[in-house]
Simulated assay, not measured.
Amino acid sequence: MKREWMDILHHEKVATDTYQMVLNGDIPGSGIRPGQFVHILVDDNFFLRRPISIADVDEQAGTLTILYKVLGKGTKSLTAKQQGDKLDVLGPGGNGFPMEELKTKRALLIGGGIGVPPLHYLGRQLVEQGIEVISVLGFQSKEYIFFEKQFNELGEVYVATNDGSYGHHGFVTDILPGLEGRFDTYFSCGPAVMLKAVSKELTGYDGYLSIEERMGCGVGACFACVVPTPESDAKGYRKICRDGPVFKPEEVVL
């Protein structure tokens, strides 16, 4: 991981409690893989950094795009940052999706809420490899929806909202039975309860889960972000920041 003061080129609100920020610097040239994250120090008033998934990368322009949701004082303070300000950024962190190992021709992307952004960069990379992409995106309501247009540029898109204010009334898992046989591998990111439901619904398919979790150090030195595994011994945990955030469904217990 590399630490750098990155310039804010663009910062805007894109949905309820959700913001998009474009940063410029050298980190985008670090060979970022879809699914990795950056660890941002908001300012000196906050001791811990905030992990934020990477939604897009332009290595030639030296930019990376992130989207974050206001969840507390730290992310609320981040909304005050403006174009021209600098951010203390550490990254890229974690292990992303194993792009070199994929042997799929048709991919299904399943995102929930702020778990949607990393799937956009993944989708772009898959399309560039000639892989067909179908996306299923879930949000609380119409006011929380973002990046629908960007995913439509990648392929077919289905949107579900909890309250039925847009798209399918219900959850992303409601849509999955209708897509049986139309994909080889699935990739999902979102709340643990959603990931658990998705992996149960898609048993028998090859898949990858990207786990959202609060982090402490972000480099594997602490145990603030662990997930249990099927192993019963002392090694029965994985650190999401270092070993993940991407795992095979059979590697973790949600």
Rank of each mutant, 00 (worst) to 15 (best):
I52Q: 10
H169M: 12
Q36Y: 00
I52A: 02
K200R: 15
N162C: 15
I40A: 09
G29C: 11
K69T: 13
L67A: 14
G25E: 15
L71F: 10
L209Q: 14
F247S: 12
L154Y: 06
L67G: 07
S199C: 00
A234V: 03
F46H: 06
K200V: 12
I40W: 02
E213P: 09
K81F: 12
G178N: 07
Q60R: 01
F97I: 04
L23C: 07
K86S: 02
V133F: 03
P230R: 12
G31C: 07
L108K: 00
Y208M: 01
V42R: 13
G62A: 10
P245D: 11
V227P: 00
G204H: 00
C217W: 06
L108D: 12
P191F: 12
H11E: 15
T63H: 06
L109I: 12
G25F: 06
T229E: 07
G115L: 00
L78N: 08
P249V: 04
V252K: 07
Q83A: 01
L87Y: 10
L41M: 10
G236I: 04
D7K: 13
E132M: 05
Q129E: 13
V38N: 00
S188Q: 14
P228F: 08
Q125D: 05
T18C: 12
G72V: 12
A224H: 09
L209W: 05
Y208K: 01
L179P: 00
R50A: 06
E251N: 08
T104P: 02
L109M: 11
Q150D: 05
E100Q: 05
E231I: 02
E100H: 03
I211P: 00
H39L: 04
P118C: 12
G138K: 03
L9P: 05
F247H: 13
H39Y: 03
E250I: 04
P249I: 11
